[in-house]
């Protein structure tokens, strides 16, 4: 077996006295699409945010390739360059056009030339179906379009891994499809992805593995069809029962 892209060992995270993650272990291999499911408050998002250290782990280890992410000696910005993230609330920069949103970090972090950054931005926006919206400001785009710009913005950095944190939860139902299609294309292109979502259809069709979390631990994981159709754990059954 190859060396995993991401390896999480005994990850714990507490906010004050509230322990959200109680020892999570997970390896993610190159090209895997891991969908993380679970009721709210189960620690899915917190785990995802620990991977690029938007949350500081309380204890445990997170490895990205050969780098210990949560070591004080690690330049976290170097890790983040290679780990793309998309948020539930899009978080586009409202003062920049779609194209400038995609260009900014390329220019400032990767030090790409304006021409190169522009070329990449145009290609990525084209790919997410927004070739005709490049000069629009976020406020002039629909939620679905904004989320696709956010995906293009992360992809422009040529990440090794993409983290998706409930990216369709804030969207109107009719806009969800466009975003999921983009993610599907991405998965089929071989991108390593960690996806926190409630979209069962997406999980079933696209994921290579489904992980069910509850109470700060991984309760069950495996082939999506196995987890969905024959859940062994009571809590998984209960959750899937509610969601259907």
């Amino acid at each position: 077996m190859d060396k995993p892209v991401i390896r999480i060992k005994q990850l714990r995270k507490a906010f004050g006295s509230l322990e959200v993650l109680k020892g999570v272990d997970m390896d993610v291999q190159k090209g895997e699409v891991v969908v993380i499911l679970g009721p709210s408050g189960s620690g899915k998002s917190t785990m995802l945010r620990c991977v690029n250290r938007l949350e500081e782990p309380t204890s445990g280890e997170i490895w990205f390739e050969d780098v210990l992410v949560n070591s004080p000696k690690t330049d976290i910005n170097e890790v983040r360059e290679h780990v793309g993230m998309v948020f539930q609330s899009f978080n586009l920069f409202p003062h920049l056009t779609a194209k400038d949103n995609v260009m900014l970090a390329q220019r400032k972090v990767l030090k790409r030339s304006r021409a190169e950054a522009e070329r990449t931005a145009e290609a990525q926006l084209e790919k997410v179906g927004l070739g005709d919206r490049m000069d629009y400001y976020p406020a002039q785009l629909s939620g679905g379009q904004q989320q696709r710009v956010a995906i293009a913005r992360a992809l422009a950095m040529d990440p090794h891994v993409m983290l998706f944190d409930e990216v369709t939860s804030a969207l109107d139902p009719e806009l969800v499809r466009g975003v999921l299609d983009v993610m599907k294309d991405l998965a089929q292109g071989g991108m390593t992805m960690l996806v926190v979502t409630h979209e069962m259809g997406f999980a079933r069709d696209v994921a290579t593995r489904a992980v069910f979390m509850d109470g700060g631990v991984i309760v069950e994981q495996g082939e999506p069809s196995a987890v969905f159709d024959n859940p062994r754990n009571e809590r998984t059954k209960d959750f899937l029962g509610h969601i259907r």
Binding site: L54, R80, N91, H95, L104, A105, V109
Partner: peptide, 25 residues
């Protein structure tokens, strides 16, 4: 807060995030 997180997740430093994302807004 999401603005800062988005900038950070792209690998921008504290001051880059301030200078190009937070301050202009």
């Amino acid at each position: 807060k999401g603005q800062f997180e988005a900038a950070s997740s792209l690998g921008m430093t504290y001051w880059q995030s301030m200078r190009f994302v937070i301050i202009p807004q």
